[in-house]
Design a protein around this nucleic acid. Structure first.
Length: 284
DNA sequence: AGCTACTCCTGGTAGC
DNA sequence: TGCTACCAGGAGTAGC
Protein backbone atom coordinates (compact mmCIF):
# COMPACT_ATOMS: atom_id res chain seq x y z
CA UNK A 1 0.00 0.00 0.00
CA UNK A 2 1.39 3.37 -0.88
CA UNK A 3 3.11 5.08 2.02
CA UNK A 4 5.53 8.00 2.10
CA UNK A 5 8.23 6.49 -0.18
CA UNK A 6 5.71 5.41 -2.79
CA UNK A 7 3.90 8.76 -2.76
CA UNK A 8 7.22 10.63 -2.95
CA UNK A 9 8.18 8.51 -5.95
CA UNK A 10 4.89 9.30 -7.65
CA UNK A 11 5.37 13.04 -7.04
CA UNK A 12 8.92 13.00 -8.41
CA UNK A 13 8.04 11.07 -11.52
CA UNK A 14 4.90 13.08 -12.29
CA UNK A 15 6.57 16.47 -11.84
CA UNK A 16 8.37 16.74 -15.19
CA UNK A 17 5.21 15.76 -17.06
CA UNK A 18 2.85 18.15 -15.32
CA UNK A 19 4.71 21.32 -14.38
CA UNK A 20 3.22 24.22 -16.35
CA UNK A 21 0.57 22.18 -18.15
CA UNK A 22 -2.91 23.61 -18.46
CA UNK A 23 -5.98 21.51 -17.72
CA UNK A 24 -8.32 21.37 -20.71
CA UNK A 25 -10.91 18.85 -19.56
CA UNK A 26 -12.17 16.69 -16.72
CA UNK A 27 -13.85 13.32 -16.84
CA UNK A 28 -15.19 11.68 -13.68
CA UNK A 29 -16.15 8.02 -13.93
CA UNK A 30 -16.66 7.38 -10.22
CA UNK A 31 -18.10 10.30 -8.31
CA UNK A 32 -16.90 9.21 -4.89
CA UNK A 33 -13.31 9.28 -6.08
CA UNK A 34 -13.67 13.07 -6.24
CA UNK A 35 -15.53 13.24 -2.95
CA UNK A 36 -18.85 14.05 -4.58
CA UNK A 37 -17.42 16.96 -6.59
CA UNK A 38 -18.28 15.42 -9.95
CA UNK A 39 -20.39 18.41 -11.00
CA UNK A 40 -18.27 21.21 -9.57
CA UNK A 41 -14.83 19.95 -10.50
CA UNK A 42 -14.83 21.11 -14.13
CA UNK A 43 -15.21 24.84 -13.57
CA UNK A 44 -12.64 24.75 -10.78
CA UNK A 45 -9.86 23.07 -12.72
CA UNK A 46 -10.43 23.62 -16.45
CA UNK A 47 -8.24 26.45 -17.67
CA UNK A 48 -6.00 26.29 -14.60
CA UNK A 49 -2.26 25.72 -14.84
CA UNK A 50 -0.62 22.97 -12.82
CA UNK A 51 2.22 24.01 -10.53
CA UNK A 52 4.88 21.84 -8.95
CA UNK A 53 3.46 18.61 -7.55
CA UNK A 54 4.22 18.26 -3.84
CA UNK A 55 3.89 15.51 -1.26
CA UNK A 56 2.73 16.02 2.31
CA UNK A 57 2.54 12.82 4.36
CA UNK A 58 0.80 10.38 2.04
CA UNK A 59 -1.04 13.15 0.20
CA UNK A 60 -0.20 14.47 -3.25
CA UNK A 61 -0.85 18.16 -3.81
CA UNK A 62 -1.34 19.44 -7.35
CA UNK A 63 -1.34 23.26 -7.05
CA UNK A 64 -3.49 25.20 -9.51
CA UNK A 65 -2.83 28.70 -10.81
CA UNK A 66 -4.82 31.20 -12.80
CA UNK A 67 -3.19 34.31 -14.15
CA UNK A 68 -0.07 33.58 -12.12
CA UNK A 69 -2.03 33.39 -8.88
CA UNK A 70 -2.80 30.43 -6.66
CA UNK A 71 -6.24 28.99 -7.39
CA UNK A 72 -6.52 26.15 -4.92
CA UNK A 73 -5.22 22.65 -5.50
CA UNK A 74 -6.19 19.13 -6.30
CA UNK A 75 -5.33 16.95 -3.33
CA UNK A 76 -4.90 13.24 -3.95
CA UNK A 77 -4.62 10.23 -1.66
CA UNK A 78 -3.88 6.79 -3.10
CA UNK A 79 -5.11 4.83 -0.07
CA UNK A 80 -4.74 1.16 -0.99
CA UNK A 81 -4.80 0.85 -4.73
CA UNK A 82 -4.79 4.32 -6.25
CA UNK A 83 -2.40 5.12 -9.08
CA UNK A 84 -1.61 8.25 -11.10
CA UNK A 85 -0.53 7.83 -14.70
CA UNK A 86 0.16 10.21 -17.55
CA UNK A 87 -1.14 8.66 -20.72
CA UNK A 88 -1.63 9.74 -24.30
CA UNK A 89 -5.15 10.96 -24.94
CA UNK A 90 -5.80 8.17 -27.42
CA UNK A 91 -4.41 5.46 -25.16
CA UNK A 92 -7.19 3.18 -23.92
CA UNK A 93 -8.32 3.91 -20.35
CA UNK A 94 -7.33 1.54 -17.61
CA UNK A 95 -10.35 -0.61 -16.66
CA UNK A 96 -10.17 0.94 -13.19
CA UNK A 97 -9.76 4.53 -14.32
CA UNK A 98 -11.89 6.74 -12.06
CA UNK A 99 -10.90 10.29 -13.02
CA UNK A 100 -9.04 11.86 -15.92
CA UNK A 101 -7.70 15.36 -16.53
CA UNK A 102 -7.05 16.27 -20.15
CA UNK A 103 -3.91 18.40 -20.58
CA UNK A 104 -2.93 20.99 -23.18
CA UNK A 105 -0.12 18.83 -24.57
CA UNK A 106 -2.60 16.23 -25.76
CA UNK A 107 -1.95 13.88 -22.89
CA UNK A 108 -4.04 13.08 -19.83
CA UNK A 109 -3.41 12.63 -16.13
CA UNK A 110 -5.44 9.62 -15.01
CA UNK A 111 -6.35 8.42 -11.55
CA UNK A 112 -6.87 4.65 -11.52
CA UNK A 113 -8.10 2.88 -8.39
CA UNK A 114 -9.26 -0.73 -8.17
CA UNK A 115 -10.79 -0.58 -4.68
CA UNK A 116 -12.12 2.98 -4.91
CA UNK A 117 -10.71 4.00 -1.52
CA UNK A 118 -8.50 6.70 -3.01
CA UNK A 119 -9.52 10.33 -3.36
CA UNK A 120 -8.66 13.21 -5.64
CA UNK A 121 -10.50 16.34 -4.62
CA UNK A 122 -10.36 20.06 -5.22
CA UNK A 123 -9.53 22.22 -2.21
CA UNK A 124 -9.53 26.01 -2.28
CA UNK A 125 -7.36 25.83 0.83
CA UNK A 126 -5.31 22.61 0.85
CA UNK A 127 -4.37 23.31 4.45
CA UNK A 128 -7.93 22.42 5.41
CA UNK A 129 -7.09 18.84 4.46
CA UNK A 130 -3.44 18.79 5.48
CA UNK A 131 -3.37 20.97 8.57
CA UNK A 132 -3.87 18.18 11.09
CA UNK A 133 -0.93 16.12 9.87
CA UNK A 134 2.03 15.53 12.12
CA UNK A 135 5.60 16.40 11.14
CA UNK A 136 7.41 15.00 8.13
CA UNK A 137 9.74 12.18 9.22
CA UNK A 138 12.32 13.30 6.67
CA UNK A 139 11.91 16.95 7.55
CA UNK A 140 14.12 19.04 9.84
CA UNK A 141 11.72 18.90 12.78
CA UNK A 142 11.96 15.14 13.24
CA UNK A 143 14.79 13.59 15.24
CA UNK A 144 15.43 11.44 18.29
CA UNK A 145 14.94 14.27 20.73
CA UNK A 146 11.60 15.27 19.24
CA UNK A 147 10.41 11.68 19.08
CA UNK A 148 11.47 10.90 22.63
CA UNK A 149 9.64 13.95 23.95
CA UNK A 150 6.57 13.24 21.80
CA UNK A 151 6.35 9.61 22.93
CA UNK A 152 6.43 10.77 26.51
CA UNK A 153 3.24 12.78 26.06
CA UNK A 154 1.19 9.89 24.66
CA UNK A 155 -0.17 6.76 26.24
CA UNK A 156 -0.79 4.61 23.21
CA UNK A 157 1.19 1.63 22.07
CA UNK A 158 3.89 2.28 19.48
CA UNK A 159 2.22 0.70 16.47
CA UNK A 160 -1.13 2.51 16.49
CA UNK A 161 0.64 5.72 17.45
CA UNK A 162 3.10 5.56 14.56
CA UNK A 163 0.24 4.82 12.17
CA UNK A 164 -1.59 7.92 13.39
CA UNK A 165 -1.01 10.56 10.70
CA UNK A 166 -1.60 13.38 13.15
CA UNK A 167 1.33 12.12 15.23
CA UNK A 168 3.77 11.59 12.37
CA UNK A 169 2.84 11.93 8.69
CA UNK A 170 3.63 9.31 6.09
CA UNK A 171 4.21 5.98 7.79
CA UNK A 172 1.92 3.04 7.05
CA UNK A 173 1.75 -0.58 8.03
CA UNK A 174 4.87 -1.71 6.17
CA UNK A 175 7.36 0.94 7.22
CA UNK A 176 6.17 0.98 10.83
CA UNK A 177 6.85 -2.76 11.10
CA UNK A 178 10.23 -2.38 9.40
CA UNK A 179 11.31 0.57 11.56
CA UNK A 180 10.24 -1.08 14.82
CA UNK A 181 12.23 -4.18 13.95
CA UNK A 182 15.33 -2.21 13.05
CA UNK A 183 15.04 -0.27 16.31
CA UNK A 184 14.47 -3.47 18.31
CA UNK A 185 11.13 -2.26 19.66
CA UNK A 186 7.95 -4.30 20.05
CA UNK A 187 4.82 -2.79 18.46
CA UNK A 188 2.84 -3.22 21.69
CA UNK A 189 5.29 -1.20 23.78
CA UNK A 190 3.48 1.72 25.44
CA UNK A 191 4.94 4.94 24.02
CA UNK A 192 6.01 6.43 27.35
CA UNK A 193 7.93 3.26 28.18
CA UNK A 194 10.43 3.90 25.36
CA UNK A 195 13.73 5.18 26.79
CA UNK A 196 15.47 8.10 25.04
CA UNK A 197 18.16 5.90 23.50
CA UNK A 198 15.52 3.64 21.97
CA UNK A 199 13.57 6.64 20.69
CA UNK A 200 16.76 7.81 19.04
CA UNK A 201 17.21 4.38 17.40
CA UNK A 202 13.62 4.49 16.21
CA UNK A 203 13.96 7.97 14.72
CA UNK A 204 17.13 6.93 12.92
CA UNK A 205 15.48 3.72 11.68
CA UNK A 206 12.47 5.62 10.35
CA UNK A 207 14.62 8.11 8.45
CA UNK A 208 17.08 5.54 7.12
CA UNK A 209 14.38 3.14 5.96
CA UNK A 210 12.25 5.81 4.29
CA UNK A 211 15.26 7.31 2.51
CA UNK A 212 16.38 3.90 1.27
CA UNK A 213 12.85 3.00 0.15
CA UNK A 214 12.64 6.24 -1.84
CA UNK A 215 15.94 5.31 -3.52
CA UNK A 216 14.35 2.01 -4.51
CA UNK A 217 11.19 3.83 -5.70
CA UNK A 218 9.01 2.23 -3.04
CA UNK A 219 7.76 -1.28 -2.38
CA UNK A 220 5.64 -3.48 -4.68
CA UNK A 221 4.76 -6.81 -3.13
CA UNK A 222 1.49 -7.25 -4.98
CA UNK A 223 0.19 -6.04 -8.29
CA UNK A 224 -1.09 -2.73 -6.98
CA UNK A 225 1.63 -0.17 -6.40
CA UNK A 226 3.46 0.86 -9.56
CA UNK A 227 5.32 4.05 -10.34
CA UNK A 228 3.64 6.44 -12.81
CA UNK A 229 5.85 4.78 -15.40
CA UNK A 230 4.26 1.44 -14.64
CA UNK A 231 7.30 -0.08 -12.97
CA UNK A 232 7.33 -1.82 -9.58
CA UNK A 233 9.44 -0.46 -6.76
CA UNK A 234 12.37 -2.43 -5.36
CA UNK A 235 12.32 -2.02 -1.59
CA UNK A 236 10.24 -5.18 -1.03
CA UNK A 237 13.51 -7.08 -1.61
CA UNK A 238 14.85 -5.47 1.54
CA UNK A 239 11.93 -6.17 3.90
CA UNK A 240 13.14 -7.53 7.21
CA UNK A 241 9.80 -8.51 8.71
CA UNK A 242 6.83 -7.33 6.63
CA UNK A 243 5.13 -10.28 4.92
CA UNK A 244 7.79 -12.68 6.21
CA UNK A 245 5.82 -14.61 8.86
CA UNK A 246 7.47 -17.98 9.47
CA UNK A 247 10.64 -16.99 7.66
CA UNK A 248 13.90 -16.52 9.57
CA UNK A 249 14.77 -13.11 10.97
CA UNK A 250 17.57 -11.61 8.89
CA UNK A 251 19.33 -10.62 12.09
CA UNK A 252 18.99 -13.67 14.37
CA UNK A 253 17.23 -16.38 12.28
CA UNK A 254 14.31 -16.66 14.72
CA UNK A 255 11.08 -17.21 12.76
CA UNK A 256 9.15 -13.98 12.21
CA UNK A 257 5.72 -13.93 13.82
CA UNK A 258 2.56 -12.29 12.63
CA UNK A 259 0.14 -10.80 15.12
CA UNK A 260 -2.78 -8.42 14.86
CA UNK A 261 -2.51 -5.02 16.49
CA UNK A 262 -5.41 -2.65 16.12
CA UNK A 263 -6.86 -4.72 13.26
CA UNK A 264 -3.55 -4.49 11.36
CA UNK A 265 -1.36 -7.39 10.38
CA UNK A 266 1.86 -6.85 12.31
CA UNK A 267 5.21 -8.56 11.90
CA UNK A 268 7.82 -8.99 14.62
CA UNK A 269 10.92 -10.93 15.46
CA UNK A 270 10.23 -12.27 18.96
CA UNK A 271 13.91 -12.21 19.80
CA UNK A 272 14.99 -8.84 18.36
CA UNK A 273 11.80 -7.17 19.59
CA UNK A 274 11.09 -8.41 23.11
CA UNK A 275 7.47 -7.99 24.19
CA UNK A 276 6.90 -5.24 26.74
CA UNK A 277 6.49 -6.29 30.35
CA UNK A 278 2.88 -7.12 30.86
CA UNK A 279 1.11 -4.04 31.98
CA UNK A 280 -0.51 -4.12 35.36
CA UNK A 281 -4.23 -3.87 34.88
CA UNK A 282 -5.56 -0.86 36.65
CA UNK A 283 -7.78 -2.30 39.31
CA UNK A 284 -11.16 -0.87 40.30
C1' DA B 1 -7.56 10.27 25.50
C1' DG B 2 -7.59 6.19 23.35
C1' DC B 3 -9.65 1.84 22.60
C1' DT B 4 -12.70 -1.24 19.49
C1' DA B 5 -15.87 -1.93 15.82
C1' DC B 6 -17.52 -0.64 11.62
C1' DT B 7 -17.46 1.36 6.92
C1' DC B 8 -15.83 1.88 2.34
C1' DC B 9 -14.36 -1.62 -1.93
C1' DT B 10 -12.69 -5.43 -4.95
C1' DG B 11 -9.81 -9.23 -6.63
C1' DG B 12 -7.68 -13.17 -5.10
C1' DT B 13 -7.84 -17.32 -2.85
C1' DA B 14 -9.08 -21.10 0.41
C1' DG B 15 -12.32 -24.52 1.08
C1' DC B 16 -15.70 -27.49 -0.48
C1' DT C 1 -15.44 -26.36 -12.54
C1' DG C 2 -17.98 -23.32 -9.89
C1' DC C 3 -19.68 -21.68 -5.88
C1' DT C 4 -19.34 -19.13 -1.29
C1' DA C 5 -16.88 -17.02 2.39
C1' DC C 6 -13.32 -14.55 3.79
C1' DC C 7 -9.19 -11.60 3.61
C1' DA C 8 -6.20 -7.24 3.08
C1' DG C 9 -6.15 -2.48 4.75
C1' DG C 10 -5.81 3.77 5.39
C1' DA C 11 -8.55 6.60 7.35
C1' DG C 12 -12.85 8.46 9.00
C1' DT C 13 -16.49 7.92 12.29
C1' DA C 14 -19.30 6.30 16.24
C1' DG C 15 -19.67 4.60 20.75
C1' DC C 16 -17.74 3.66 25.07
Amino acid sequence: MPELPEVETVARLLRPHLDGRTVTGVEVRWARSVGGQARTLGPRVIGARLGRVERRGKFLVFPLERGGRGAGALVGHLRMTGRFTVRAADEPADPYERVRLALDDGRALAFDDVRKFGRWVFAAEPQDLLGALGPEPLGPGFDGAWLSAALGTRRRRLKPLLLDQTFLAGLGNIYVDEALHTAGLHPLTPAPQVPPAAAQRLATAVRTILARAIERQGSSFDRFYRTPEGRPGGYQDEFRVYGRAGEPCRTCATPIRRLVVGQRGTHVCPRCQPAPRRQRRTSR
